[in-house]
Nucleic acid binder design. Structure first.
Lengths: 119, 119
DNA sequence: AAACCTTACGGCTTACGTAAGGATA
DNA sequence: TATCCTTACGTAAGCCGTAAGGTTT
């Protein structure tokens, strides 16, 4: 279970289309398909039903979505605590700092998107 | 950020030794060292201080540990909902409730630990 | 044909185990 | 020397983009 898979899951669920989610995340569409396939394999459950208009959550997928969202929030919190969220951090990071902001699920970026962000 | 890295983090923190944690998780000891190194890199923070007797949590590591435990709990819940985590959960186990840390590094199997399956 | 997902394939990257190295006591 | 972590290195597996294939409308 990996961060990018969870993020793909939630993004697809919101967009109801893989190609759009792929675009949002900066991946090719087959890459997103692959990520979901991996997640479905590791959970041994089908998360989406594929339709010609996009995808639709299965019953299992619908049950897991809230947990997936919580997971994303926790990961963001962890990054925020560590100081990763939003700071480029050129060098000399001692790791001892007083980061204690308590924002919530803003700012998904940081180390997420891989490359080629056409905007 | 990957499941195995979080699991390694928590297990090491509990064992206070990498070699023991590696044993518990079914990895070689360098593999665990590598996993933590990856997590530290992705968080841009040192999580442990290495000592000849084992390891000791840094300040950052100590701050992140509770969140890491919650993350593990969420992953276990997700597996449980999907039917991977030992419980088949046919009935109405919807699992929609607040975050609750439960047990941590019990039951790594299912799709997690490589066990004694080298390449 | 258009829209959207999946499969196939080649290539770069990651992850692991074994072996060797380094540091502390 | 004993203990425990890290580095080096070779190999297997993973991940992604491009290209080609399905399926429904």
């Amino acid at each position: 279970m990996q961060e990018r898979e969870i993020r793909a899951f939630v993004t697809i669920a919101d967009a109801r289309r893989m190609d759009r989610a792929a675009q949002q995340l900066g991946y090719s569409q087959p890459a997103i398909s692959y990520q979901i396939k991996c997640l479905e394999k590791s959970l041994r459950t089908k998360l989406f039903e594929r339709t010609p208009e996009g995808v639709r959550l299965t019953d299992s997928g619908r049950r897991m979505l809230p947990t997936a969202r919580e997971m994303l929030a926790l990961m963001e919190r962890m990054k925020r605590i560590s100081g990763v969220g939003g700071n480029t951090g050129v060098g000399g990071n001692t790791g001892i700092d007083g980061v204690a902001s308590e924002l919530d699920h803003l700012l998904s970026e940081g180390a997420g998107a891989p490359s080629s962000t056409p905007r």
